[in-house]
Design a protein around this nucleic acid. Structure first.
Lengths: 340, 340
DNA sequence: TTGTATGCGTTATCAT
DNA sequence: ATGATAACGCATACAA
């Protein structure tokens, strides 16, 4: 239907614009990047020529020539999961009017996967990196160091970030929820999380749980600590196993929103009163947890803020507004609802 | 902590590798891109030199020189919403081992926003574009045509795609659900969707609803057709307004999973039997709908498949395996559950 | 204010 | 099988 006969379009270059405007390519370059550096009539002629030939600058060439880059690379463990949507959205919002573009990939919960992506992103000459994971292969660390690109780690607050960090403490958040449950009167508190093997967030949350239980002089019984695969069904299975087990807990703390929701739905199906039969608490405040019956007590994490602030500190460094290697703790909130 | 004294790292170039291996840069280039074109000993020396200097190729320079690109641009209306997560994941999975990178941005439900992003992506010299929206500004269409980049539109099946299309028919899906509800015995069917003004999917679903009602000889009463903002709360509000209105429906079809879930939770709160007092049907099968009580009847859409297949047809064209301008209908399924 | 020469790091092309 | 040379499209540095 288009009249290009199926062939590849032939995009115009700066030279074409220059000819049409009766100036040199260099003047076109200036007129486009800093109009104030060019006389008014020339500026107008260039603008007109740009429109006339439908000129779209080639940023590859521009970036190569200027030794700069307008691309930010973001690596998350997983894209299927909606968990990172708010973070990505936050990054995207900050980048939108900055002239920077966002390159995204998922590393699949493996350090090797992440390393491959870091290589690819560095090859792409990204101006900065945002990494959700906080554990990396030595090779990845070495590459990043050599390349000298600014990096923000966002998954959890670590004592020794690669470069910068913007996050919250998974350890402290988990600990805080346990203390909260204790204040509410719960004593036999169970903990359900995803596997900690390949996930530093889960690991930190487990540690936080143990820390709190220790502080309270309570037992962190192995029978009451479960690791489950992701998904609503896992939450359902976990709550059944715990409540019907020998050492039934009075509260179950799920280190994941989806797990908690799955557990609640299972309780609804079985007619188990929440929190009468068992109290439920979650980690991460997705909208759903507020609307289910009963609404679920949870931790509100700064997901979108991490994206926004992360992108901001990265741009600050890239654009030379700051040399600092900041570490930002965006904190968390406990949202007490009717499930506890 | 790193010993680079805070300075930008100085990455090695092909020339450095070449010197170390005692060959010309051109030989290094060949050794890296097509090892079979180089002698065995040279290949080994190059590999060793690459490792020794920690060489990471500069794909910007490579792309510029070869007039090719290894970047795919994806524009979705929204990133906050988890709706597009499976699609993005599908694209990402196909691209993972292809050597292509994914650039993502959100256009914010506006054609102007999309146009700006298309410009930015073309400036970035993307090899192909995936657009979720199927309506575009004339300027955007013209730019794409001139650039000659392959494009896949994924939001809904349209009669005249820009280039290629991989999707399902929102119209047919909505129609099918209405016919399904009718077969189940429902006659007063209400329809709740997002605003159709800036969303071609919503518009198609509304049309599908009207088509079906017409075919059934039923009234598509304006009182029973609501447009709501997104969110669980909207679904709750909608179901209350409808059920407590003068013309209470026996079934409400929500053109959105979140709206339907919000409605169900509201029914739970009010003790309204579902489907006794009112039946609920949804559009889009998120995991949650299967686990709530009662599970909600819905349409299963090929979200991930759209991402996968879309990326595949794009790569086929980019890599010259196909010249065809395919249009792929991935269909949909009705999932009958207990809410209807 | 504008233009000229040169280079960014790689690959295409043509030689050897 | 390997190398020399010339682009790719633009921006830096300097000259006019």
């Amino acid at each position: 239907m288009p009249d290009d006969a199926g062939g590849r379009g032939t995009s115009s270059r700066m030279r074409d614009v220059a000819q049409r405007a009766g100036v040199s390519p260099m003047t076109v370059s200036r007129a486009l990047r800093d109009p104030s550096k060019v006389s008014e009539p020339v500026r107008r002629r260039v603008e007109e020529a740009v429109r006339a030939v439908g000129y779209v600058p080639n940023r590859l060439a521009g970036n190569l020539s200027s030794m700069r880059s307008n691309v930010i690379g973001l690596i998350v463990p997983n894209l299927d999961n909606s968990l990172y949507a708010p973070t990505i959205q936050g990054v995207s919002a900050v980048l939108r009017d900055s002239g920077f573009q966002l390159m995204i990939a998922d590393g699949g919960y493996s350090m090797e996967g992440e390393e491959a992506l870091i290589t690819a992103f560095l090859a792409q000459q990204v101006a900065g990196l945002m990494l959700h994971d906080t554990r990396h292969t030595p090779a990845a660390v070495e590459m990043i160091r050599r390349a000298g690109v600014p990096v923000v780690e966002t998954g959890t607050l670590v004592p020794d970030p690669l470069d910068m960090a913007v996050s919250y403490s998974n350890h402290d958040a988990a600990r805080a929820m346990v203390l909260h449950l204790h204040r509410l009167g719960y004593r036999r508190i169970a903990f359900v999380s995803l596997s900690a093997t390949h996930n530093d967030r889960s690991r930190d949350r487990q540690r936080g749980f143990r820390t709190a239980m220790g502080e309270l002089g309570l037992q962190a019984e192995p029978r009451l600590m479960l690791e489950m695969p992701p998904g609503l069904a896992s939450g359902a299975e976990a709550v059944v196993r715990l409540v019907q087990g020998e050492a039934a807990p009075d509260a179950v703390f799920f280190a994941g929103d989806v797990l908690a929701a799955g557990a609640l739905f299972e309780c609804q199906r079985r007619g188990w009163a929440v929190p009468g039969r068992v109290a439920l608490a979650a980690f991460d405040d997705i909208d759903m947890l507020r609307h289910v019956v009963p609404p679920i007590t949870t931790l509100r994490l700064p997901r979108a803020g991490i994206g926004r602030r992360g992108a901001e500190v990265l741009l600050d460094r890239i654009q030379g507004r700051s040399q600092e290697r900041v570490v930002v703790d965006l904190g968390f909130e406990i949202i007490q609802r009717e499930s506890t």
